[in-house]
């Protein structure tokens, strides 16, 4: 399994200036982060309809030199944030090869319709928002619940709230909306910091949960466990269907009941297994019949 270490910051904006990137990454190491994602934005709405070809998403920026430099200190991932207004983005995403090169895909809707699409059908991992646009877009309860069920995560960036008090108000409003509509489920915190002075340590960030309407546990999970879940979900999306081999290192004990009880349970289990076996055989049979039918149609 892909190994990552806490703590996580999944939004470090990419800068062409290497010295800025180095300063940011050094500060991240110093404050205790171990896994970070370098973010690059792509505005789908600015692409003209006629020019929407098979590949419209950019290649990830070259950050190999930074990976080598911070090899033993940080795990550097790459993320793309797609800004969009309509559902046409879904087709472009489905045919894109470049998107597979990114570890994380975030959606940044610009309209209410796009926000609903982002929650219900967007083939990404993360829903973010533009702090400069204010609290114009607020998610509704149903869309939030669908997004949570689909394993999507909502991102709250804290750096804009340090930079400007107006952004802070909007950020609090959006976070409170997440709290009232969906009990702040599946929230992650990330920085979105333009320079190293906007970065805060993971414990400080977790502590900011109080102003964003999250509980203490939710605050801690927002910089640790939820980020790990998000990473695993993104990896599974990238890799598609995979086969997993599980190897036991020793005897597996299912229960600590007595031998008699165990024997009756074993009998029951055997009965169940035989039933399941028959059902599986039927399913397989159905499956092959289905495939043969499809082949005939083709």
């Amino acid at each position: 399994m892909e190994q990552t270490k806490p703590f996580y910051d999944f939004c470090v904006p990419y800068s062409k200036d290497d010295s800025v990137m180095r300063a940011l990454l050094n500060e991240l190491v110093e404050t205790g982060y171990k896994t970070v994602a370098i973010d690059q934005s792509f505005d789908h709405s600015k692409k003209e309809a006629g020019k929407r070809g098979s590949e419209m998403f950019p290649e990830p920026h070259k950050v190999e030199h930074l990976r080598r430099e911070f090899h033993d200190k940080l795990r550097i991932l790459q993320r793309i944030t797609i800004l969009y207004v309509d559902v046409n983005v879904a087709h472009a995403m489905s045919v894109s090869q470049n998107l597979r090169k990114f570890n994380l895909i975030a959606g940044q809707p610009k309209t209410d319709a796009a926000l609903t699409h982002c929650c219900t059908a967007f083939n990404g991992d993360l829903i973010t928002f533009d702090p400069a646009a204010g609290s114009r877009l607020l998610v509704n309860r149903k869309a939030y619940q669908v997004a949570v069920r689909r394993g999507m995560f909502f991102e709250i960036k804290y750096a804009p709230s340090i930079a400007d008090s107006n952004y802070r108000k909007d950020m609090i409003k959006i976070a409170q909306n997440y709290c009232t509509k969906g009990k702040s489920k599946n929230i992650i915190f990330s920085s979105g910091a333009a320079h190293e002075f906007q970065l805060r340590g993971p414990y400080d960030v977790a502590n900011l949960s109080f102003i964003f309407g999250l509980s203490e546990d939710q605050g801690k999970n927002a910089v640790d466990r939820h980020c790990r879940q998000l990473f695993l979900k993104a990896e599974s999306r990238r890799l598609g269907k995979t086969i997993m081999f599980v190897k036991g290192n020793g005897p597996i004990v299912f229960s600590d009941t007595s031998e008699d009880e165990q024997s009756t349970e074993d009998d029951e289990m055997m009965g169940l297994e035989s039933q399941i076996g028959e059902a599986d055989a039927l399913e397989v049979k159905d499956g092959t019949e289905h495939v043969i039918k499809r082949l005939k149609v083709a």
């Binding site: 340090i162 002075f197 805060r200 900011l208």
Partner: peptide
């Protein structure tokens, strides 16, 4: 929380 949210000291970026 206030200290965490302070971003400027005399108009100079700070932490």
């Amino acid at each position: 929380m206030s200290i965490e949210l302070i971003g400027h000291y005399q108009q100079m970026p700070c932490h």
